[in-house]
Amino acid sequence: MIINHPLLGPRDAQEFVYLGDAALIHRPDGMVAGEDAFHDYLYLRDNPAGLHRELWYHEQGDRSWLVVTRHTLTHEITGVELARDVARAAGRSK
């Protein structure tokens, strides 16, 4: 596969490490949320046969974490963003 890195352009997926569902961005605040919230955060995942937003890490590249929107049936990639930008847009900060 080829991932079109937002800064570096098309790069072979072999340079990346896959993590999984980009919903991992939405980590609960551990001083507020309890075990149930963390349980859901960590273990409950959508597994769509279709478009899926996933975290990929450009380990053999610029070490950016990316959010890749990939079709799980065709491998078509329709969007690639810097995870940091996505996280900030989702309201994550410090």
Binding site: A83, R88, K94
Partner: peptide, 11 residues
């Protein structure tokens, strides 16, 4: 890197 970019991007 995951923690600093994805979880706490402004640290």
């Amino acid at each position: 890197e995951y923690c600093r970019q994805v979880l706490w991007p402004d640290l």
